[in-house]
């Protein structure tokens, strides 16, 4: 094992690629998952706009997507990835399966955060003449904001884990390095270093998320 400038450069690029994949996948995951989570909350039987059939359909779709193992999903969506990105390997291509895996997971996180909001507060808003949109944006999201932020933190961590898995199929980033150098070439040192870097990334993201959630929470004195 050689610790030359080349190796360090490779690791730094790995970190960059990983962060790139994780941040964009989480962002796109929320673009899809946030509205889906809101729909799940609002259309449920005791939601503000009960639509049991819609809830049932969304519920099943989300469950199906969530139960497909990520590695399988990665392979299954290759045609779609090719269509959207033009190729099926590398960091940018990996964002596609990562987003598809993240969206239903995020939808569930959003749903559980929004369902924590006190029914009495929703009722109070209704009694003041608030419409569905006001209740969603000002009451549900406003009151659940710290819980939503904790959800973002958990999602980032989970997607980071998935992104490393994408290394198996040439996904780019730290997972890719760990598999190519560490596993295929028996360079255990590099594998361990990449794992340590991944652990450190999760720790940092988690710490930042929790700190923000705490600062933003006004429920405590």
């Amino acid at each position: 094992m050689t610790w030359d400038a080349e190796t360090v450069k490779m690791l730094l690029e790995g970190i960059r690629d990983t962060l790139y994949m994780v941040l964009f996948s989480t962002l796109f995951g929320y673009v899809l998952g946030l509205p889906l989570g809101i729909l799940l909350t609002v259309s449920d039987r005791d939601g503000i706009r009960p639509r049991p059939w819609l809830y049932r359909i969304l519920d099943i779709v989300v469950n199906i997507l969530r139960s497909v193992p990520f590695l399988i999903l990665l392979i299954l969506v290759i045609p779609l990835t090719r269509l959207l990105v033009g190729k099926s390997y590398g960091s940018t291509a990996t964002i596609v399966p990562l987003t598809i895996a993240a969206a239903p997971f995020i939808a569930r996180m959003v749903e559980s955060s929004l369902k924590e909001v006190d029914k009495g507060v929703i009722e109070a808003a209704q009694s003041l003449g608030a419409g569905t949109r006001t209740i969603i944006f000002k009451v549900l999201i406003g009151e659940a904001r710290t819980s939503l932020l904790v959800g973002v933190t958990i999602s980032l961590g989970t997607i980071l884990g998935y992104s490393a898995m994408a290394g198996v199929v040439g996904g780019g980033g730290l997972g890719d390095i760990a598999i190519r150098y560490g596993y295929y070439r028996y360079e255990t040192g590099i594998m361990i270093v990449t794992v340590i870097v991944l652990v450190a990334l999760v720790q940092i993201l988690q710490a930042i998320g929790m700190m923000l959630a705490k600062v933003l929470d006004r429920r405590r004195v």
């Binding site: 006190d118 507060v121 109070a124 009694s127 003041l128 003449g129 000002k138 406003g142 009151e143 429920r219």
Partner: peptide, 22 residues
């Protein structure tokens, strides 16, 4: 109904304030 409700205020046993707002 939404407009008429603005004419009918309501207060509750558990106050039901927005906890994340001043």
């Amino acid at each position: 109904l939404k407009i008429v409700r603005r004419d009918i205020g309501m207060i509750f046993q558990h106050f039901n304030l927005l906890m994340q707002r001043t």
